[in-house]
């Protein structure tokens, strides 16, 4: 009864939220309306000046990494904080006694020639494409976050196929352990902050890339520094992706039996039809 009351209350609240949002949205200018405040107040400057001021062809990159670079630093910190939280909560025993080595699966090498070969063929392209997305972010959609996630996914793919890093295995070169990934994430966030503080050291505001002594043309300097910042985001994000995977997947054992709580009769159920 109590559960039903709760569900009713939740439905009431959500329904109210829905109606309220609907009422509010009707007052908003339509999406993409060129005469809406969102398109006439701040945006024109970004559209007209971004190329000249920041050197980035892609306006999204100009806004994210330069005009509102401080937000991006914050978002990087949010992602790092997620990795930190997972590390604290899930990998609590680190530094303590060693875990028992679990069986194959998410935590062990998958011995399959097909998977191994496919990973060898695909992974280099995946990792390279991640770097391309990072570098090309100035011109096309992409940048540090997207590239970082792709790179992290490449690492996760390798990790899934080749198992965790183990000192007695050659695969340990690739699978980044929790600590190594975490160091990567920290280093990325630190690098971002360091770029910001470096700008202060050269007399500008925090993250004021224009003052950095990287060349004559301020727009070009900003472009270079933006790439630096994006690279820092890239490192932080890919490190965090690896941390999340390592902390969540560690200890998963493939037992050769059905998964826990697996219902072993799906085939019989199918035959009814």
């Amino acid at each position: 009864m109590k559960a039903r009351l709760r569900a009713a209350a939740a439905a009431l609240i959500l329904g109210g939220l829905f109606v309220g949002l609907l009422a509010g949205v009707r007052d908003l200018p339509p999406i993409g309306d060129p005469s809406s405040p969102a398109s006439t107040h701040v945006s024109p400057r970004f559209i007209e000046e971004a190329r000249r001021e920041t050197g980035a062809l892609n306006m999204v990159t100009a806004v994210l990494a330069d005009y509102r670079g401080y937000d991006t630093l914050g978002e990087t910190a949010v992602i790092f904080a997620a990795g930190l939280g997972a590390f604290v909560i899930l990998a609590a025993s680190i530094g303590g006694p060693r875990r028992e080595t679990p069986g194959p699966g998410l935590s062990h090498r998958v011995d399959s020639l097909l998977l191994d070969t496919a990973a060898r063929v695909l992974a280099p392209f995946l990792l390279l494409f991640a770097v391309y997305v990072l570098v090309h972010g100035h011109v096309s959609p992409g940048g540090g976050f997207q590239g970082g996630v792709l790179f992290g996914l490449g690492l996760v793919t390798l990790r899934l196929v080749w198992g965790p890093p183990r000192p007695d295995r050659a695969a340990s070169r690739f699978g980044p352990g929790v600590r190594a990934s975490f160091l990567l994430a920290s280093a990325g966030l630190l690098a971002y902050i360091a770029i910001g503080i470096a700008a202060m050291a050269f007399g500008g505001a925090f993250l004021d890339y224009g003052v950095l002594p990287l060349g004559q043309d301020p727009a070009h300097v900003r472009e270079l520094a933006t790439l630096g910042v994006e690279a820092a985001v890239f490192v932080a994000v890919s490190g965090t992706v690896a941390v999340l995977f390592e902390t969540i997947a560690v200890g998963v054992a493939e037992t050769g039996r059905p998964l826990p709580n697996e219902d072993p009769a799906p085939v019989e159920a199918r035959e009814e039809g």
Binding site: V42, F46, R68, A205
Partner: peptide, 12 residues
């Protein structure tokens, strides 16, 4: 403190 040196509504 203007982050990135950008003024008012354009920067943070």
């Amino acid at each position: 403190h203007r982050m990135g040196g950008w003024p008012g509504p354009f920067g943070i």
